[in-house]
Design a protein around this nucleic acid. Structure first.
Lengths: 193, 193
DNA sequence: TATAACATGTAACAAGTTACATGATTTC
DNA sequence: GAAATCATGTAACTTGTTACATGTTATA
């Protein structure tokens, strides 16, 4: 994940201290990434030693000291470069669910159905939360678009599960995974080039 | 990613040597994960010292030695436990694209449109490849379901990009990202609990 | 005869996680 | 007076990546 880009981008919008950044990510952007506090502080430390951000201390009363991070010129350049890179790259997305699904025929069909139904219910719940969040944003803002993105993929997840469950009612999931995956034991068929 | 589950599962289907496993993953399952050879050998090493697989050497002629890995009883148990865990867990999926999208208004609209059009083209290509691959599998096999899953998400990606591009023609992407994300600078509104 | 495929790894590094450590202030 | 929130980090660990190292055999 492009955590460095995220941190640079947020600091470009506004200077912030670490906790504030972390809070923003954990509350408002948790559908985007799961950046943990120690990872964030680690990134901030690296950005600082690279000269992309500056750190200035301030204290209110007797509270712990706060360090406000501010983008430097080099940080702004770095941000723009990483942003263009991110927008140009094609990112593969992998679903951890698929790994389990690949071996679905290794457990009894009845048990599998229970798991899938549970998954379905939990996705339905998430969709509702996401729809609520989308409704709070006005069309045309970047957070709206990314939230909408998230919502669309959750709906696809639901559609896929429904397709799978419907087909499981008609036929069992077949067990010959390896054969389906093609020749693996036999000498590979040379690709005629 | 649940790479350990994947390796255990494949070895449960058939004993294999490292290169064979790696080849299978890279050729047939590259839509599922991007497991690299050194990572695979590392996982095999750990499984071996945990007693989940056994390693037996064999040699054909003067070729480099091959080590065939075979699941042990404890490995089979471990597999079943990890599989049930995977099927029950709700996995968050994050899209690296979203991080760039969040800052779309930080570059000129015309440039952004070019990037998005490129992304659209590359996704269209992938869909075609995936449809081809789906067609080669028969319905009811696990690889069919996971490939179909992949295809559906790619189509959603295309739909989303089209929605975004259509709206960008009507209105500019707004720049007030922080305001959209809510109060960050002001004292947080305490949630009334 | 060169390159692709077969076959296995190590070493150094980068990224990220979990648990721990510390201490103040505000709200219930 | 306890719990949540504010605020910052470190240390140890896990996971994964890139580059390197080595050598054989089959195909173009």
């Amino acid at each position: 994940m492009d955590h460095t880009l995220l941190v640079l981008g947020l600091l470009k919008l506004q200077e912030m201290h670490g906790y504030q950044l972390s809070d923003l990510v954990e509350r408002r952007l948790k559908y985007l990434t799961d950046l943990k506090k120690p990872t964030l502080y680690h990134i901030l430390g690296k950005l600082e030693s690279a000269g992309d951000v500056t750190k200035s201390a301030s204290r209110e009363g007797n509270r712990p000291e706060r360090f406000t991070y501010r983008l430097t010129k080099s940080g702004t350049e770095r941000f723009e470069q990483l942003l263009r890179q991110n927008l140009q790259d094609t990112h593969d997305t992998y679903f951890n669910d698929d790994i389990g699904m690949l071996f679905l025929s290794e457990i009894p069909a009845a048990e599998a159905r229970v798991f899938l139904e549970q998954k379905r219910a939990s996705i339905k719940e998430r969709i509702e939360h996401t729809v609520d969040a989308v409704g709070k944003h006005s069309v045309g803002t970047p957070p709206y678009y990314t939230l909408r993105h998230h919502e669309m993929h959750l709906r696809t997840e639901l559609d896929w599960l429904d397709e799978l469950l419907a087909q499981m009612k008609k036929r069992a999931v077949r067990e010959d995974i390896l054969q389906c995956l093609g020749e693996t034991n036999a000498k590979k068929t040379r690709k005629k080039k």
